[in-house]
């Protein structure tokens, strides 16, 4: 009787195929990913049945902070702080950086006109720092100081919602013509910049009014004024309406009375049967 020969099989597993798959997946995720933009505070948006997607470009996001902790434990001072982020066109001359720079210059100019005794001047370096910021929330008076900080300190400073120096002031809402608050100055600057972009483009290049080219050039302006898609207000669902209403009220004063609210999608069962 011959011995039963046990064939020795190598336990090596060929990982080439696996590696192929993972590389493919990796490529997919790398190409599709849009990184979560860092926001100074986390807000839990309410859900709605609206299926409109938030635009990715030409967008001004207004973030209204909620309480740091729910209920009575939360510090009421952390509620209702306003932050703004600007986003320009996708890949044109008017990228986010360019739009931010234009808006900043415009806004600082307006602020200096309103507060002749308290003027601020920014260096080129500070303007450059500002253009790389995603979301910011400091009054004009503290802007220079804020831009001088390095990124880590800036995030830390801005993340402390209880600090009265954080958040763009929205109180003291008056008429359109006189005594704008900081938030209104920013909004007015956005409006002016978008209008200038439109007029400048149309004027300089001799593009015909109403043509397809013209339409592409006034993206921000259109989104802002006509469809109201350029301003998105993001607030926590448990924030009292009266807090959010202050922001609405400011926007109404600025005649930017069409805007969008950021919401999450409501679950399927909620919207069915209609």
């Amino acid at each position: 009787m011959g011995k039963v020969k046990i064939k020795r099989k190598s336990t090596l597993i060929d990982m080439t195929a696996m590696s192929d798959v993972t590389v493919l997946l990796l490529t997919f995720f790398m190409l599709t990913s849009t990184f979560l933009a860092k926001e100074p505070t986390v807000v839990n948006t309410p859900s709605s049945v609206s299926e409109e997607k938030v635009p990715m470009y030409n967008l001004v996001t207004i973030l209204v902070s909620g309480k740091d902790k729910p209920g009575k434990e939360g510090n009421p001072a952390t509620e209702g702080k306003v932050f703004i982020s600007f986003c320009g066109d996708q890949d044109s001359t008017y990228s986010s950086e360019k739009v931010r720079e234009l808006v900043l210059k415009e806004a600082v100019g307006m602020y200096n006109k309103e507060h002749p005794s308290n003027q601020i001047t920014l260096t080129d370096q500070e303007i450059k720092t500002f253009t790389s910021l995603n979301m910011f929330g400091v009054p004009f008076a503290g802007l220079k100081q804020y831009l001088a900080l390095d990124q880590e300190k800036r995030d830390k400073f801005q993340g402390n919602m209880a600090d009265p120096a954080v958040g763009i002031p929205i109180n003291d809402n008056k008429d359109y013509d006189k005594g704008l608050n900081d938030f209104q100055i920013w909004m007015k600057a956005v409006y002016f910049v978008s209008m200038n972009l439109r007029d400048e483009q149309v004027g300089n290049l001799g593009v015909e009014k109403g043509s397809e080219e013209e339409k592409q050039m006034q993206n921000l302006y259109n989104a802002l004024k006509r469809s109201g898609q350029a301003i998105a207000v993001k607030a926590d669902k448990n924030t009292p309406y009266s807090t959010v209403q202050k922001v609405f009220d400011n926007l109404q004063t600025m005649k930017l009375n069409k805007f969008t609210l950021m919401t999450a999608l409501k679950s399927e069962e909620e919207q069915s049967a209609n």
Binding site: F29, T45, S50, E51, V54, T260, A264
Partner: peptide, 17 residues
């Protein structure tokens, strides 16, 4: 790190002040 689900928006038009 990716956000697959984009936020939805709700349009709102208020009268001016």
């Amino acid at each position: 790190c990716t956000t697959m689900i984009k936020s939805q928006t709700l349009q709102l038009a208020l009268p001016s002040n």
